[in-house]
Amino acid sequence: MPFEELFHTADWSLRVWAADLDHLFVETARGMNALTGFKLAEKPRVRRTFTASAPDAESLLVSFLSELVYYAEQDRLAFDHFDLSLNLEDGQPCHLSATLRGAPILSLDKAIKAVTYHNLQIQQTARGYEIEIVFDV
């Protein structure tokens, strides 16, 4: 698992790493899933699409994860398969196009209220790309 839980007094925090940005987004979503401990129904499988533009990659990541928070609370849906296409050309707004595949949530240990920007900065490291992210619970 390319993520680990970090100490946080009241909320949840993860360190996530991946070889490229697409995978960083996917692994952060998977890390978030692991924190909530959801169990998915086998059927029906559902598919949703998501597109967003933002001035920077961190904002795109928050938008993407906030979409997952919304689906979990409002539609009781969670996703375990992600196809992402990121466009991060210099000088252009960042763009994300994603296809989410998942199923209705059978059970959930803990809900995430929101995805925060607290100290959120995508950094290039020896492992590729890395972030620390805090979720409000």
């Binding site: 961190e58 928050v62 906030s66 209220k113 929101a114 995805v115 607290h118 100290n119 959120l120 409000d136």
Partner: peptide, 27 residues
């Protein structure tokens, strides 16, 4: 309330640029 805060923290990422506000934490 969670959604209102999420929406405006997101929107204000542009507002701080617009108004030249420099902060140590984007939250």
């Amino acid at each position: 309330g969670h959604q209102v805060c999420t929406d405006y923290v997101q929107d204000f990422q542009s507002a701080v640029r617009k108004y030249g506000i420099d902060l140590p934490d984007r939250e």
